[in-house]
């Protein structure tokens, strides 16, 4: 069984499928997230595929400060994802609310609503930063105990 577990753990590290959700961003981080999948950066080199259904996804790539209207939906999507699952907060707004922090319709960072594994600051996040974050997140899985650590971004 040890071997199978190792193989599965290897699979989890080598095959991160992402689900992209915009919780109220300005679009900038979203287009950079998508740009990371296109020829110049090509995240598929690392096995990343963009999935449409939360049921198929491993990493929730979440951009933007959470608005009141998306809050419930964000929770719902997070709950729909099967374990093991990870959340990446992409962009300064997703990390802390950023420039929109304090607006009447904004909750603040993603971590106000769901637990976050990786914080990627930047306005907008560059695709390189995103690639590096994915790699760092996957590297943390080599040490199973420390996977919840928040230093990965």
């Amino acid at each position: 069984m040890g071997l199978l577990k190792k193989a599965i753990n290897w699979g989890i590290r080598k095959s991160p499928w992402i689900l992209h959700f915009n919780a109220g961003a300005c679009n900038g981080c979203d287009i950079e997230t998508i740009a990371a999948l296109t020829p110049r950066f090509d995240l598929e080199r690392m096995g990343v595929i963009q999935q449409g259904s939360p049921r198929h996804a491993d990493i929730l790539v979440c951009t933007g400060a959470v608005t009141l209207q998306t809050k419930e939906r964000l929770k719902q999507i997070y709950d729909q994802m099967p374990e093991p699952k990870f959340v990446m907060a992409v962009g300064t707004c997703a990390c802390s609310g950023g420039i929109f922090d304090g607006c009447y319709c904004v909750m603040g960072g993603i971590d106000k609503v769901i637990p976050v594994d990786v914080y990627i600051p930047g306005c907008a996040v560059r695709p390189e930063a995103l690639i590096s974050a994915v790699q760092k997140l996957l590297d943390t899985l080599k040490r199973p105990k420390k996977r919840g650590e928040e230093d990965a971004g």
Binding site: I8, E44, R45, D58, P84
Partner: peptide
């Protein structure tokens, strides 16, 4: 694009087994 590495489908399959 440069595309996935050779072990990608296997990794996908194993990962789904562990989910």
């Amino acid at each position: 694009r440069s595309g996935p590495p050779w072990y990608q489908p296997l990794a996908d399959f194993l990962k789904l087994l562990g989910k």
